[in-house]
Each structure stands twice: as structure tokens, then as C-alpha cells.
Design a protein around this nucleic acid. Structure first.
Length: 594
RNA sequence: GCCCUCGUAGCUCAGCAGGAUAGAGCAGCCGCCUCCUAAGCGGCAGGUCACAGGUUCAAAUCCUGUCGAGGGCACCA
């Protein structure tokens, strides 16, 4: 509709021999301004030395002329009226019959109503969550999960070929700390007395993994604590007690690797990694999120991709040595400071892996690559983009979406969290407490760059205040009406046929406004997808549900007049289709009964 | 100190590739079930769009500065 109007105005301007750059046609905010508005007269008036309203009048007159010549086609009959308003806007009023014709169309398309081909099959990779497998997902990851999944699903819906990926940080010091934590808990289960390191992972899940090791392998991994303690620098138990928790945990990792030997260390390490990864995978699946790939960081080293990336940077002349380390001159590409890629000890950094990973992504041929990261990683964006530029790639192919933290509130109180101490709310606990639907919906209600207050009490409440139930209830109500019809033995004739004359019976203001809202759905999807803002969907759905509830309260659907009844039922069936499509895109169920 | 994000109604937030009288949900007040689920609907009230400049036909929206909130500035991941 919008593009048809744009073409129409373009034709009129050509006719008037007026040049222009772009024509914007927008939905109006105010019903009194019609359905669509165009500001072209305001934009062009000054250059032409005309008053905006006069120019607008000439454009409208030109359109009328074209219409009289019968050169407008279908659009011509869709425009009921054109007004010149305010400072010089041209307002278009769309005929009601154009809206009514949408009902059979929506019913015919069903789950595909709103689907688009904008992406034209272009390949997009969306990487999201990618939390370190050092513990279960917590509520912070939940937001990235819900948001990333919604963006991916939206892009797919508008025609992109979407590849969802989870980057598994299965290498590095944090994983070593996890392996060591598991082993120490295991030693405790074996009866060894020890002071658990302040920097170790203290969550109960570490005990669980240790218990598995103990149950399946008895004392096979046991080492005398006196041996472990040899040469161990003191831990920092309370701040300022002279200990060093970093040095302490690093020494413990060294002891674990040394005392267990390669094979046994590897086993403990893998047990921890795999147990947690399985848990994360299961957790996300129950949250309605599945991936096309789980990409291992270690595989980048093993396949030689990391070395290859470093080599490419070296060949391009972007590396230099200093203080025994190899640095990437990222400042040449807008970063704040240069970054180390190979450490003094010869090990590559996490950043080097990330360069290799992003290089790999682009080599795999994705037209676009989207990373969903926590906002705490924002400082990381310039250096990754710098690396892509240095490799000769276009950094604009990478889009990094930063998700702000979610702060939980319970009875008005902020819920405190800290990963390391094990004192955090897991995603699993959140799902258990508020349910998958509420969690998925609440997480995407806000723009991702907006700090979010997650009100647990509201998410749990089965009341009108809860926006999820509000939308789901509208869906359930439609089902309920059908149920009623069946119980009363009313035979509904609601198979969609084009030009169904009975639809002309939809004349109430509630019906017209509902039709207009339904017509906006494809635009809402397109806008939400292209701007990567699923919250636009939640706003749209609330509006649609509100229009429906208002209609429900104002009019009876199952009336005696069969024509009117069938027309109304078709309308609410169309509402059900759109509600279901919207909820489905957000990973929320569309129940028939509540 | 430098960088990023944010500041809109009592609260939580939309609106921000400039557009017409700044919207919604909670909370508050007043109404609506002999009728398809009241998990619903209608109405009233509520604003210096943090502040100060600038850009222009037009600024909550763009630019600069100030103040405030959060985050980031590792040879950690």
C-alpha cells in the first residue's frame, strides 16, 4: 500500500515536471489525518518558491487527473479521499472495502500472513548467548537468548537464510578454573580437607559434577592434599590479608595438571565442560531455542585457523613485536590502543581466537554476520571490526547488537547476583518461577540497549496487569467463541473466499479499526526485523489484543443474523491468525484455553 | 581521565533515518457482567521530553556542552 502511494506521488510529480529525491509515505498517528500521510510538499516547497499547501494542492490535483484518465489501477479504487492538512501534508484516506478484502487473504495465508521475501535468501549468521560453559545460564544470559532468538526468527520470517550459532569458549583460563574447581570438590568428597579457593567456582553444580566423577571412578583421581599444597602461594580470603587469589588459583591449576597428568586432567576438564554444555543446551531447548551449530573455540586452534589469522595479519603488515609479545596495530583502524594477539609465553590470546572466528564466519560466505553480546563487551567491538578491516574484509558485514543487563526485582527489592560466588538466579530457576512464555515475552519487551527491570511478581501474576496473559487471553477468547458456537450447534460458514459479500456487513467502528490494525501486521514485522527490534512486536500485539478485547466487549459475535455472524467470526479468526503468528515469532505459546 | 549506552507522566517504558495536539501499561479516581472466559472494557487525572545553547519551514528526535545513571578501558575469557 505504502509503495503504491509512493509510486502514485512519483507519477504526479513527474507529470508536474518537479524533481525530487525520495518520497516518504507514513502511517498517520491520528485517525483524523487519514491512513497515510506524505510530507513531500513541505520538503520541496522551499526550493520551488511555493507555499507548501499550494504545492500540495497541485500534487493532489495531478493525482486526481491521473485517476480520471483511469491510469491508477487498483490503488485508484483504494483511495477514498485525499486531504491537504496542517502545514502542507497530503493525507490519504483508504476505502473500507480495501480493508475488508484483507480478511479472506489473512485466513488463506494463515501462518504465512506477514512473511516476506525482503531477505531474498541472503545468508545471515546470528551468534548469540555464547556464555562460557563454566556454569549454568543465568538470567542475564536469558535476555540475550530471548533477544537473539527473536531477531533470528524475525529475519528468517522476512526471507533471510538464517544460521544460529553458539560460540563455545572451551579453551582458556576460565575453563581451567572450572576443571580445577571440579577436581577440588571431588577431593573433598574423597575425604580430603581443604580450603576452597576464593576464585574457584562455588556453585552447587560443581559439587554435582564432582559427585559424578566420584561415583563413577572412586578414588582414581585422588591426590593427597599435602602434595597439592606444595609451593602454593596464599589465597586472599578477605580483602587485604596479603594473599593473591589470582596467583593462588593459577598455582592450583598448575598443580591439578601436573599431579593428574594429561589424560586424567583432560578427563576431569571434559567432564565439567560436557556436563555444563549439555545443561545449557537442554536449558535453551526448553526455552524454545535451538541452534544450527555449536562452534568450538578449541577447534579454531586445532584446525590452524588461529595461526592462519595471525599469519594473514602479519603478511598484511599489521603486526609488530614488543616486550616479547606480538601486537596487532588496531589503532590504525580506529581502536583506542593496540592489542596483543600472541603472548610473551607463546600462547595466543582470546582475541586471536575471536579474529580467527570472525574470519571463519566471513569465509563461510555469510552476507551478514550478527553478534549479540552483553553490553559489558561493548569495548570489544572496535577491535574486532579493526581486525576485519585489517584482514581486508568489510567490517560493515558485521553487526554487533549489545544487550543491556536485566535486573531482577522481587517484591520491590533488587535481587543481588554474582556468578563466581554461585549466588545467582539461573535461567532455569526463572523459567520455573515465571514460566517460559512470560520469560520470553518480558525479555523482549524492551529495546535491547535499554537497561531492564524484570519484575518477577508481575511476570508471575496471572492477571490483567501481565502483558503476556493479556495477549494470550485474546487468542484464547477467539477459540472460546468457536467452542461456544460448537456447543450451541451453530453452523459457521467461514471458509475464506475472495470478495465475500458478507464481509460488507463489517461496518462498526470497532471492526474498521481492528481491520486497520490487522493490515499493519506485515509492516510491523518488516520494521521489527530490519531494525532488529522485537519489542516492536510486543507493542503491536498489545494493540491488536486491545482492539480485540474492546470489540469483544462492545459486540456480540454469535448473533442470529447468519451473514453478520459469519462475517464477524471470519474477522476474529483473522485476529487469531495474527496473534498466533506474533506470539510464535517471540517463542511464546498461543493457547486456546486459559 | 578517555570511550560506549541511557535520562520522556508517581513507577515501568514506547516514540528518536526531524513532521501535525508527545503515547501506552501499571499505580490513583469514576463507571461497565440477566450477554461468546471481568485474565476483559470505557472514562478522568497525570509532562519544563534532565539542563543550556545551536542547526531549520519544523527538534523528544540531529549537533555541541553541562549534570545524573549504568557499563567499558588486561599479555582474563
Amino acid at each position: 500500500m505504502q509503495s503504491e502511494l509512493q509510486n502514485l506521488i512519483a507519477t504526479a510529480l513527474d507529470e508536474l515536471k518537479i524533481g525530487y529525491d525520495a518520497i516518504t509515505v507514513e502511517r498517520t498517528k491520528d485517525q483524523n489525518h487519514g491512513d497515510f500521510a506524505c510530507n513531500i510538499a513541505l520538503v520541496l516547497a522551499k526550493g520551488l518558491g511555493l507555499k507548501p499547501r499550494d504545492l500540495a494542492a497541485r500534487i493532489v490535483a495531478s493525482i486526481e487527473l491521473i485517476r480520471e484518465r483511469g491510469q491508477l489501477g487498483a490503488v485508484g479504487s483504494h483511495i477514498a479521499r485525499m486531504d491537504i492538512a496542517g502545514p502542507g501534508f497530503i493525507n490519504f484516506h483508504i476505502a473500507e472495502h480495501a480493508y475488508r478484502a484483507l480478511v479472506p487473504e489473512i485466513l488463506r495465508q494463515g501462518p504465512d500472513y506477514g512473511r516476506a521475501k525482503l531477505g531474498a535468501g541472503r545468508r545471515v549468521q546470528v551468534e548469540f548467548v555464547s556464555a562460557n560453559p563454566t556454569g549454568p545460564l543465568h538470567v542475564g544470559h536469558g535476555r540475550g537468548a530471548a533477544y537473539g532468538a527473536a531477531v533470528a526468527d524475525l529475519l528468517e520470517y522476512v526471507g533471510f537464510d538464517v544460521h544460529r550459532e553458539y560460540y563455545v569458549n572451551d579453551a582458556g583460563r576460565q575453563m581451567d578454573i572450572l576443571g580445577t574447581s571440579v577436581w577440588l570438590r571431588y577431593l573433598e568428597l574423597c575425604g580430603e580437607a581443604l580450603d576452597f579457593p576464593s576464585n574457584g567456582y562455588k556453585g552447587d553444580y560443581v559439587w554435582d559434577i564432582a559427585a559424578t566423577l566420584h561415583r563413577e571412578h572412586g578414588d582414581a583421581y585422588r591426590v593427597d592434599m599435602d602434595q597439592v599444597r606444595v609451593g602454593l602461594p596464599p589465597d586472599e580470603v578477605t580483602p587485604g590479608d596479603g594473599g593473591d587469589k589470582e596467583a593462588h588459583i593459577d598455582a592450583l591449576i598448575g598443580q591439578a595438571k601436573h599431579l593428574l597428568g594429561d589424560n586424567r586432567w583432560r578427563y576431569v576438564f571434559e567432564l565439567g565442560l560436557n556436563t555444563i554444555l549439555d545443561d545449557i543446551r537442554d536449558d535453551l531447548a526448553q526455552f524454545g531455542i535451538t541452534y544450527q551449530a555449536w562452534f568450538s573455540e578449541r577447534s579454531l586452534t586445532e584446525s590452524g585457523a588461529v595461526n592462519r589469522a595471525v599469519e594473514r595479519l602479519r603478511e598484511a603488515g599489521h603486526l609488530y613485536e614488543q616486550a616479547g609479545a606480538l601486537w596487532f596495530r588496531s589503532t590504525a583502524f580506529g581502536d583506542e590502543k593496540d592489542r596483543v594477539v600472541v603472548r610473551e609465553n607463546g600462547q595466543t590470546t582470546y582475541f586471536a581466537s575471536d579474529i580467527a572466528y570472525h574470519m571463519d564466519k566471513l569465509e563461510r560466505g555469510f552476507d551478514r554476520v550478527i553478534d549479540v553480546w552483553g553490553a559489558d563487551h561493548h569495548g570489544y567491538v572496535p577491535r574486532v571490526k579493526a581486525a576485519l578491516s585489517a584482514l581486508g574484509d568489510d567490517p560493515r558485514r558485521l553487526d554487533v547488537l549489545l544487550v543491556q543487563f536485566a535486573v531482577l526485582y522481587r517484591s520491590g527489592e533488587k535481587v543481588q547476583m554474582s556468578t563466581r560466588s554461585g549466588d545467582f538466579v539461573t535461567l532455569r530457576e526463572l523459567r520455573k518461577e515465571v514460566g517460559r512464555d512470560a520469560a520470553r515475552y518480558f525479555y523482549v519487551m524492551r529495546r535491547c540497549e535499554q537497561h531492564m527491570d524484570f519484575d518477577l511478581d508481575l511476570a508471575k501474576s496471572q492477571s490483567a496487569d501481565n502483558p503476556v496473559y493479556y495477549v494470550q487471553y485474546a487468542h484464547a477468547r477467539v477459540a472460546s467463541v468457536l467452542q461456544q458456537a460448537a456447543e450451541r450447534g451453530i453452523a459457521l460458514e467461514v471458509r475464506p473466499t475472495p470478495d465475500d459479500p458478507r464481509l460488507a456487513r463489517l461496518v462498526e467502528s470497532h471492526e474498521i479499526s481492528l481491520l486497520k490494525t490487522l493490515a499493519r501486521w506485515p509492516e510491523a514485522v518488516e520494521s521489527a526485523a530490519l531494525s532488529e527490534e522485537p519489542h516492536q512486536l510486543t507493542h503491536y500485539l498489545r494493540e491488536l489484543a486491545n482492539d480485540f478485547h474492546t470489540y469483544y466487549n462492545a459486540h456480540q459475535f454469535l448473533v442470529d443474523d447468519a451473514e453478520l455472524r459469519d462475517a464477524r467470526v471470519q474477522l476474529i479468526l483473522a485476529v487469531r491468525v495474527v496473534l498466533a503468528n506474533g506470539l510464535n515469532l517471540l517463542g511464546v505459546s498461543a493457547p486456546d484455553r486459559m
